[in-house]
Design a protein around this nucleic acid. Structure first.
Lengths: 222, 222
DNA sequence: CAGTCATTCTTATGATCGTTAGAATGTCAG
DNA sequence: CTGACATTCTAACGATCATAAGAATGACTG
């Protein structure tokens, strides 16, 4: 019976993907790349890992065909092999959130001030943003915003907020988002803006979560 | 900066899920359990692995909270921890199919006679089945059919087809399905029925794929 | 209660993985 | 061509994993 051999082959291929997704650092890389293409150097600094280690992990991801790369001058730029890879990251995280109590609890304690979490659903938020009833800000670095962002969102990287306060409406509720539930950028933004007296909340979604839920995102035409 | 520590903790939890999904045998177990609950013994025989090894893999899945179990007399019965786990299996497989050429090609050569692959879309098939224009048969074992099956499908386990030919209409096209793209049961059924002169095709979808596509499935009320 | 069966726990062994350090590659600036 | 820089390749270490064999558990059978 060589049906066994065939099946072993098939499942082994899928396991290649699973293996690539079995290391915390590699998952973090996938989430970062889901925000947009990045150089090895910038990935390493976001990971708090040295370049050699980052490169080793990228090699594994490359061999599993989850990422592709291109050279640009001295730098090598990595990107996800497809948007389905970002979707895979989202479903892995969702399964983990659903079934691993440790994660559920850690996440629950993560949001600095739970009262600052937006209570409205995605659809309602989208409607409110469309009608200009709230001001949605994307607090990630600009190039991530340019790659893809939520509809009606404006870019306001957390590092620039203090300098650009004048651009924010003081009469509207501000809704901040960042890379996803594991990202702390929007917490920083909320703390900062709340201290300045703004009405501000955050949502947990990032662009990948929004897209995985079937909602539209905007790209910059280039 | 202990943001690093927190992040390490979060990604490590998700990596637990990835690790559990990094072994071919464990993936095969997940796919089998997606069809319905199973004893260790029946899993082992489907895997062509001995019980001890199967049990060791089940332990890993259990520790990742992807499966749960209960005792029933002498037997221990495992099941998926939730339908999202079946969804995760489907997205892993889809990413692998999309990006791993080896898998794409192996799958392409797998279907014994590609002409026997149904060409119609899921929605069209559903409509045809609803109107009784085709006869959809579920060739998996009966208990898997009972757990969940495609709408309008009747159970016709491949082991019983020969004995139950009389139940099949000779004037309608027959469409067979089984556990999914990696499962060979429907190929067997197609070969068998084609030899008897039936007009018969197969689809690659199993119940999990059907459900992941957002289409309805039927459960037996119990 | 002894025997049997299904399953897990324990332990051991070789293989693989994560990580680090040092050498090598490829590219740009002068 | 030389030096500087980003990145990968190679080699090596300890840690973890897959698998197998033997002892232990838990539950039904008589």
């Amino acid at each position: 019976m060589n049906k066994r051999l065939l099946k072993d082959l098939l499942y082994e291929q899928v396991a290649r993907i699973g293996k690539a997704a079995s290391s915390p650092k590699r998952l973090e890389i996938l989430e970062l790349l889901a925000q947009g293409e990045k150089t090895v150097e910038s990935l390493a600094s976001e990971l708090s890992a040295d370049i050699k280690l980052t490169s080793a992990h990228l090699r594994v991801l490359k061999e599993a065909r989850l990422v592709t790369f291109r050279r640009e001058g001295k730098y090598i730029i990595y990107q996800l092999a497809g948007s389905d890879v970002a979707g895979l990251w989202v479903s892995l995280r969702q399964v983990a959130e659903e079934h691993l109590l440790e994660l559920k609890m850690a996440l629950g304690q993560m949001v600095a001030d739970p009262a600052k979490l937006s209570a409205v659903s995605r659809d309602v938020l989208l409607e409110q943003a469309k009608r200009g009833e709230v001001c949605v800000i994307d607090v990630r670095p600009l190039n991530e915003y340019e790659t893809a962002h939520l509809p009606f969102a404006r870019s306001m990287p957390v590092a620039e907020i203090e300098r650009r306060l004048a651009e924010l409406p003081s009469d509207l509720e501000i809704v901040a988002y960042c890379r996803g539930p594991f990202c702390l950028l929007s917490d920083e933004a909320v703390a900062l803006l709340a201290a300045k007296g703004y009405r501000v909340r955050k949502i947990l979604d990032g662009v990948s979560e929004w897209q995985a839920a079937g909602l539209p995102v905007e790209h910059l035409e280039s």
